Computed example of a mutant assay.
Amino acid sequence: MTPPQTVSPTTHDRVIVESFLGDGEHRTLADDVLDGLTRPFKELPPKHFYDAHGADLFDRICELPEYYPTRCERAILEQRSAEIVERTGAAELVELGSGTAAKTRLLLSAMHEAGTLNRYVPIDVTEGMVRDSAARLVEEFDGLRVHGIVGDFERHLGRVPEPVDGRPRIVAFLGGTIGNFTPGSRRRFLRGLSQLLGPDDFLLLGTDLVKDPAVLEAAYDDSAGVTAAFNRNVLTVLNRELDADFAVDAYEHVAFFDRDREWIEMRLRAQRPQRVTVGKLGLRLTFAAGEELRTEISAKFTPERISGDLAAAGMELVETLTDQDGLFALTLARIRAA
């Protein structure tokens, strides 16, 4: 493996960015294609949506009238960040999948106002995004230190630095991303997250709640077709990165709520028979007319499911905060007392 690289992206001595994406890490897409597209039921993990164009499309999705999760989560943070900081006494914020830190800034601001803010630890696969947000935040918040981790939060949790001087911290996993895991994988991942928590630390978990299926399905199949373009963009990623020849427009966007599993599924459906070559892998694939490729699950939660998942990971629910319409929840949890 290529050794981790420490980069100082600004002139500030309060910023460190470490990259753990060596050459071997870039085989993730190839491995996922070899694993997921050679199964009888084809699927890919949703993390491959987010190249630069995919990230832009997702930003557009977040502004759509049908897509409520981002607005609702932000509203909770706008109204309750000061309360969260008072409850936790946190001096440090660790954020998985930090992106541009747009919503997180509300928590950092509340910590700054409370006089506790010490360090922010963003984790994201896009180094440019980690660099840019670090540079902005240290300018915005006097005394803030940033220790950025460029890596995959499923594989690089062990790279998160120890808390500064043992002071309390919040580990934030926002956006409802926990719903992309199947139940068993979700509980294993939460157990891994619990290893980042000391007795005075808290997990802040964003979860989309079970609701009217019509509301859920509209959020993932908007009338403007932005989510459809976002979904099909994963095929463009495969064409570019792995020298594949998917006919992108020959696949139809499908989104539906599975009432038994209580999750949304996004799929791509071949509208006619397809023969696909993935050049860099020497792989040949066929799709029958109507055959589907699953690109995402997004589990929706009840209070009982949240509490059960936390308990299985050795944590206990401390408080649940919701928006005024009860569409989305932020959950505070901590290590279960012995």
Rank of each mutant, 00 (worst) to 15 (best):
V215L: 15
Y251N: 04
R87Y: 01
A313L: 12
T177D: 07
L327S: 07
S109Y: 01
N231Q: 09
P183F: 02
I170R: 01
F41N: 05
F173W: 10
R188V: 11
R74E: 13
I61S: 04
T28S: 15
R187H: 02
G89A: 09
P163D: 06
L332F: 10
F41C: 00
R334Y: 03
V237G: 05
T28C: 12
S19N: 14
I170C: 03
V7E: 09
I264W: 07
A102T: 15
A219I: 08
R136K: 13
L242Y: 09
S133Y: 00
A114V: 12
R169L: 12
R167A: 14
R105E: 14
V164L: 15
H112S: 14
L34D: 08
A52W: 01
A102N: 03
R74M: 14
G179I: 08
A75Y: 02
G290I: 03
T227P: 06
P183V: 10
M1N: 05
G198S: 13
E262V: 07
A110R: 08
Y120K: 02
F153D: 00
G97N: 06
G151Y: 10
N231W: 00
L205F: 07
P213Q: 09
D245L: 09
D260T: 15
H53C: 04
E86C: 02
V7G: 00
A337M: 05
A329I: 03
A228P: 04
G184S: 11
A224F: 07
T277C: 04
H48D: 07
D222G: 07
H48R: 09
R261A: 15
E92Q: 15
R186I: 02
A214M: 02
I149L: 11
R284I: 06
L193H: 03
V318R: 07
L197V: 11
V171S: 03
